[in-house]
Structures are given as C-alpha cells and as structure tokens.
Design a protein around this nucleic acid. Structure first.
Lengths: 221, 221
DNA sequence: GTTGCCATTGACCGAAAGGTTAGCCGAATT
DNA sequence: AATTCGGCTAACCTTTCGGTCAATGGCAAC
C-alpha cells in the first residue's frame, strides 16, 4: 500500500501473483511517465501497456499520483554514484575521478536525469520526495568535494585560495552546467576529458605541465 | 492569424477592439501557462481568466497549441541581455560585467526562465521555436565571451592557457550551473559577487590578492 | 463442498477536456 | 432601410479522463 515502502522480496519470498502484476504496472508506468510526463499519460494507456485492466491499477495504487510517486521512487533506486574512494590516489586524482563519475553518471542516465529535472522544475508539489532525495545525493557529493579540496589545500597541492566550500560550490555549478548543456546539445558538445582537464588546471596548476607558480605558467605569449 | 507574426500597432493604429481582446487572452494565458504548464491549463480557465468566452479564444487562435506558441513568443520578446559594451572598460571588467549581466538577468526573470527550461526539457516538440531562439541568444552570448577572452589573452592580461572557446564554454557551463542552483535553492544559496570574483580569479590572477603568474598585468601584490 | 479471501475484470460514471456551430449585436457600407 | 461583416457568445458535441463497483475466477483453509 505504501508507495515509498515497496517491499522487496528479500529472501526467496514466493513472489505472489499480485507482486508480478504490480511490477508489470510499474514498469509500464515508468516508461510512459518518463518520456511523456505525468499529465500526458493516462491510466488507460498504462493499463494497455501493462496488459492489465485499468481497475487493477487502481486496486494496487489508490490514485494516479500514488502510482506516480511509486514510479519516481523506483526510478530513483539506482541513483547513487559509487565513489570508489581508493586510498591509493592523491587528492587531485580523487577529485578528478569524482568529476569523471559525475559526468559519466549523467551520460549513462541522461534520459531519466532529464525526466527528473523537468519534473522537479515543473511540478514541485508532485515531486517533493524526489526533491529531497536528489538534494541528499547532491549534498553528499558536495561534502566529499569540500573535504577533498580542503585536504588538498592543507597538503599544499592546491593553488587555489578560496574556501573549500566556495571552490566546491563553483565546481559543482560547472558540473551542473555541463549537465544541462549535455541535455540540450547532446553528447557531441560536451567532452568530459576536457572538462576534467579544465577542473584539474583550475584547482591545481597546469595539468600535465609546469607547476602553477612563478615561471612555469604561461607558455605561448 | 499567424502566431509568430503578431502585428504590433506600430504607429497610432486605432487599436481595434479585437486586438484588445486578443491581448487580454494572451495575458491570461501567459500567466496560466507559465505557472501551471501547458497540459494543466484548460482553455476554459484561460477564458475565465481573460473574462471572455471560450469560443472567442478559438476565434483568435485555431488551436490550443497555437495559443501556446503565441504566448511563448510574447514571453520571449523581452529576452535579451543588453551588453553595454562600454569601450572604456578593459577586457577583464567587460567579462565580469557580462557575467554579472547573466546572473542578474536570471535573477530578474527567474520564474519565466524556470518555465522555459521546464518546457524545453519536457516537450521538445511544442517548443521548437523556443529552443531555436534560446539557442540564438545563448550562442550570441558565447561568441562575445570567446572574443573577449581571446582579446584578453592577446593583451596578456589573461593567465589562462586554454583556447578561448574552451574557456568560454567552461565559463558558460558554470553560469548555467549557477542558474539551476538558483532555480532550485533560491537566492540565498547563490551569491553573484562571489561568482564574479571566482571567475575573475580563474581567468586572470588572484583578484585583489596575490597574482599567480609573474607580475605584469595584475595590480595589487 | 463450502466458505472466504485475494486478485482481477468489464461496465459504468460524472466531470472536464478541446473544439464546433448557429446565431446575436452593432457599426460601417450601399 | 437594408445588407454586410467583424467581434463575440451560449449551447452543444465528442472524446477521454480519473475513478468506482458489482461481479467473478482461483485457491487455500476448514
């Protein structure tokens, strides 16, 4: 009944018939909602797509909205970025890896990222839970960045003076900007490697080349 | 009839009764579409809001879609950033001014920016024209940035090595990131001055503080 | 076998959607 | 005075919407 608490068949539960149809419905609704939106998707369509009677949907989910948030939650499940915080790497490499993760994540989940973004922009009421969860993800990511940058600054690896919080915020903004650019312009316009390099160069000195300070800096004048 | 070609009363045209009602309808539709979206706004609502019969709307606009694109175009009209390219300023100041313009533009037009973004993300078909126009604006802005950065690099003011195009692209991404951060977190989380400072420091040396490179361009050491 | 519950359905409902139609009104043209 | 025509409306039409309900098949417990 409770949408936010979809029971997962933890251990060899016999997986009732009902769960099957529920899944079928969720799957169908997911597809339809994701690329047509909430208001443009009718329950009859969902029913047809799931090869189930419309009444059954209302047996599983009290209202259309309830179905929708169930779909949101299910879509959100795989949403986390695994920060393989390999201790072997220095802070710079870790930060670059983090940036890379973000970008490849966006690339891999482009369509649902797009959907979520549109949904959050459009219908704040319907997607409160979504908002919260995305925010949580987001601030987790930000926290990691802040800490990494702080460590880098302490170690003296990092040339940038601003507070780690500010640097992280700006960096995140840049990433989000790349995200929307990607959503609108497609893959060809955004190259992750370039972005990573740019970030590296920004936070630390010139990327593969000379150290940041006095002489090394500017090659071609 | 043609929505993209709304006749403006260029010179003291007597402003017929019909134009008045058309305007009233557009105004009402603008408000409703903007903060409820296309599919969640009904023609009856528009009619009520404009204090006009529903049939009249269909007399002015063949379909709901036509009304919508007319609204889009009208909303888009005031959309341009005036780049007061004051020759007196050096490139750094100009760039910073450009960044500032962008941010204050977003701040001033937050709600319709949000609407446009949601619309473009959600319903690409309905907003093709919108897409084009925004893209035009966008690439104009980018071009200005590219040129300014190029000039700054030639003059040696600018420490950054990457191609002006890359730098501008990254900078624009950062701005877009700030935009979406602003849309989601509200005004308190984004401070334009900080962003401008960060940009300045990124492209040129540390702004009021220690310069990273030699000694040339940057003032206070 | 019957009872009772779970899962499922087709038929149905009122409301509201986008859109149409026939006709009214008032001012200009003849 | 009669005609025309742009602006406008009430009433209507069709379709589809989210949602309900009475009824049913299957299946485990008794």
């Amino acid at each position: 009944m409770d949408a936010s608490q979809a029971k997962q068949p933890s251990l060899s539960e016999p997986r009732t018939q009902s769960q099957d149809s529920r899944d079928e419905i969720l799957k169908a609704a997911m597809g339809l909602f994701a690329n047509r939106g909430f208001h443009e998707t009718s329950m009859s369509e969902v029913a047809r797509e799931a090869r189930v009677s419309k009444a059954l949907i209302f047996w599983h989910f009290k209202t259309k909205e309830e179905l929708f948030v169930a779909v949101l939650n299910r879509l959100l499940e795989p949403y986390f970025i695994d920060f393989a915080e390999e201790a072997a790497m220095d802070e710079r490499a870790q930060i670059e890896k983090l940036v890379e993760s973000y970008l490849s994540f966006v690339r891999d989940n482009a369509s649902s990222v797009r959907f979520f973004l549109a949904q959050m922009l459009h219908d704040q009421r319907l997607s409160e839970g979504l908002n919260d969860q995305v925010l949580k993800l987001y601030s987790g990511y930000r926290a990691m960045l802040v800490e990494l940058i702080a460590r880098a600054q302490q170690k003296g690896i990092c040339t940038r003076r601003p507070a780690p919080e500010s640097a992280a915020a700006f960096l995140l903004s840049a990433l989000n900007g790349l995200l929307i650019e990607y959503l609108f312009m497609g893959a060809n316009s955004v190259d992750p490697e370039g972005a990573v390099a740019m970030v590296g160069e920004w936070l630390f000195g010139g990327s593969p080349a000379a150290p940041p300070s006095e002489n090394g800096g500017t090659p071609a004048a």
